[in-house]
Amino acid sequence: MAELNIRYSRTPHSEKLKWVDRMTKVMDNQFRFPGTNWRFGLDPLLGLFPGVGDLASFVVSALLIMTMARHGASGKLVTLMLLNSAMDAIIGSIPLLGNIFDFAYKANERNVKMLRSHYEQGKYQGSGKGIVMGVLVAVLLITVVMIWLMWQIIAWSYRMLGEYL
């Protein structure tokens, strides 16, 4: 798989966006299954730790999105990125199914590809300071949904276990 190096020639803070590339690689493509070209990153590995790992992975994704928002991503693009990351986090928090999903979905890589397309189409919008507050609110809401979902799964598991005892 090719590196996700984006051409940020129109942005004043290209080092911050290079950080986005590096973190995306670490989260989605850092490792390779031996004998194959199939890559994975820390995201699915963190997902092996129920709840806490998915939440940590989502926080990293949110930081990446906030960095992209501050460096010219439009509100529409940021919304689409948040939806990608939210779907990854919420489905990823479901035991077993979520772990398989995490290995395949790669939300951060999808977000960087959307950002690349955004820049190539000339839609760079400068500072996204107004969007950052919206991102923070969305991250908070998604975190609450994840915690609620984990609580529901734990409660369901407890009830099922009680029926067998």
Rank of each mutant, 00 (worst) to 15 (best):
I154E: 15
R10A: 14
G98E: 06
L4Q: 11
A86R: 00
L161V: 07
F49A: 10
V60A: 07
H71P: 03
I100W: 10
K76N: 06
G98L: 07
Q152M: 14
L136W: 07
K25H: 15
E120I: 06
L55K: 06
S157W: 09
M114L: 12
S57Q: 01
G75N: 02
K16Q: 08
L161P: 00
N37M: 05
K129G: 13
K76Y: 08
M27C: 02
L149W: 07
A155E: 11
W38M: 11
K106P: 04
S74V: 03
M1F: 13
M150V: 14
G134E: 02
M160Q: 12
G51T: 11
F33M: 13
R7W: 13
W156F: 13
G41K: 04
E15V: 11
S117Y: 15
Q121E: 11
P50A: 00
F49S: 07
L141W: 02
H13Y: 11
I100Q: 02
H71Q: 12
L64Q: 14
L80T: 09
R7L: 13
A138F: 02
V26I: 15
D28V: 04
L161C: 03
F103Y: 14
A2D: 13
S157E: 10
R7E: 13
D102L: 14
F58A: 03
L45Y: 00
M27V: 01
A89I: 03
I100P: 03
E15K: 15
T79G: 05
L97M: 08
I6A: 10
D28F: 06
V60Y: 06
V20Y: 08
L149R: 09
K16S: 11
L48W: 04
Y164A: 09
M27S: 02
L17C: 04
V78S: 01
P34G: 12
T143I: 07
T67P: 06
P44H: 01
G51P: 08
A2C: 05
K18C: 07
P50K: 01
L80A: 12
G53R: 00
W38D: 07
M81F: 08
L77N: 09
G128A: 03
Y158N: 15
F31H: 01
M23Y: 09
V137K: 09
S57Y: 01
K123L: 13
D21Q: 12
G35P: 09
A155V: 10
G41V: 00
H118C: 00
